[in-house]
Amino acid sequence: MSEHRISVDIDEAGVATVTLDRADKHNALDGAMFDALLDVTGTLKTDGRIRAVVVHGAGKSFCSGLDISSLGQGGGAESLLEREDGHRANRAQRVSVDWAAVPAPVIAAITGNCFGGGLQIALGADIRYAAPDARLSIMEVKWGLVPDMGITQTLPRVVAVDVAKELTFTGRIVSGQEAQVLGLVTRAVEDPLAAALELAHKIARKSPHAVRAAKRLYDETWTGADASAALMLESELQVGLMGSANQLEAVHAGLAKREPRFADPE
């Protein structure tokens, strides 16, 4: 990573706070930011300490989208379309879809502007909290483009196709409050970061094996899955959890009315 763009803090509970740290540019996406996002997801997906992840933007905005002036220099935009060996998605798409490869739940805390590629990053999270006055837009039509950062894998899970088309065809900006009504965000809250951290710590107190299995279950079956395969995955995941150390700890702690002490996944 050639320039600092993201900071990551992991607390004692195993909650990782990922901060997009280019506040002077409303955390706009340049080449260094793309590199940093791929580095972060690559690290978090292999760290067994992580129980939950919160992603937010420093300063006023979550992410204002592509830094067109920066990416236009030196062919940076073209490099984002490259697909590396072993990846179905290109580099631009991976900053959204690679959050699904992080086994722990990912919560986006949205304030200010969340436009274009920034919204697609947020859509890659499992849960989204937005300030009521946040501004969200599938903005690519403004530039004569289509959204192409993994939106086909995320947007169909949260809104109906007519809503997706209306937002995409117009590029209109919606508030965090309207985004909740439409389904773009999970909740509109006055302090998204505080609410996201509170939720992350609630999740961190649950069995990480059960939480990770639940994320996998829904990610692999929510849209378009074969019913037989989906039902089989339920059973396979359940069998893997039953009688495991953390599952027994959940039972013993519940019976004893004490806080459970769960082991981290290896």
Rank of each mutant, 00 (worst) to 15 (best):
76 G>D: 10
261 R>I: 05
1 M>D: 09
246 N>E: 09
39 D>E: 14
169 F>E: 15
86 G>E: 07
131 A>M: 07
109 A>G: 02
139 M>G: 14
117 G>F: 12
148 D>R: 14
182 L>N: 09
201 H>R: 15
228 S>E: 14
185 V>R: 05
96 S>A: 10
143 W>I: 10
178 E>H: 08
152 T>M: 14
9 D>E: 15
144 G>C: 04
177 Q>W: 10
110 I>A: 09
27 N>P: 02
25 K>G: 03
193 L>R: 10
48 G>I: 11
256 A>Y: 03
40 V>I: 07
206 K>C: 10
171 G>C: 06
35 D>R: 02
223 T>L: 14
258 R>V: 12
246 N>I: 13
16 A>S: 06
17 T>K: 03
177 Q>G: 15
131 A>G: 00
31 G>H: 09
144 G>E: 03
69 S>V: 12
122 A>R: 05
186 T>V: 07
237 L>H: 01
78 E>S: 12
248 L>D: 15
198 E>N: 01
225 A>D: 02
72 G>D: 10
37 L>G: 02
91 R>K: 09
167 L>G: 07
168 T>P: 05
225 A>R: 08
36 A>S: 04
158 V>R: 12
257 K>W: 11
108 A>G: 11
194 A>L: 01
70 S>L: 10
191 D>Q: 11
56 H>L: 06
244 S>T: 15
51 R>V: 03
135 R>W: 09
199 L>P: 01
163 V>P: 04
31 G>P: 02
30 D>C: 02
149 M>Q: 04
158 V>D: 04
224 G>W: 10
106 V>W: 09
252 H>A: 15
213 A>K: 06
109 A>N: 03
77 A>R: 10
88 R>Y: 13
76 G>I: 00
62 F>L: 02
218 Y>F: 13
166 E>C: 00
40 V>T: 02
55 V>A: 00
261 R>P: 05
248 L>Q: 15
194 A>I: 06
241 L>Y: 04
242 M>R: 15
23 A>M: 04
176 G>N: 03
123 L>Y: 07
120 Q>W: 00
227 A>T: 14
234 E>Q: 12
87 H>K: 13
16 A>I: 11
144 G>W: 12
51 R>S: 08
147 P>G: 11
38 L>S: 04
6 I>D: 01
101 A>R: 15
166 E>K: 12
109 A>F: 03
102 V>N: 10
71 L>G: 00
114 C>T: 08
51 R>M: 10
4 H>A: 11
92 A>W: 01
189 V>Y: 02
261 R>Q: 14
73 Q>G: 13
175 S>E: 06
159 V>R: 07
46 T>L: 14
260 P>V: 00
157 R>W: 14
140 E>H: 08
41 T>Y: 00
7 S>W: 07
147 P>M: 11
55 V>Q: 01
103 P>N: 06
36 A>G: 12
101 A>Y: 01
217 L>D: 04
236 E>K: 08
93 Q>L: 02
209 H>E: 15
4 H>E: 14
189 V>R: 03
85 D>W: 13
135 R>Q: 13
170 T>W: 05
34 F>Y: 12
222 W>S: 14
256 A>V: 05
191 D>N: 14
53 V>F: 01
263 A>Q: 15
224 G>C: 04
59 G>A: 04
209 H>C: 08
53 V>C: 01
253 A>L: 07
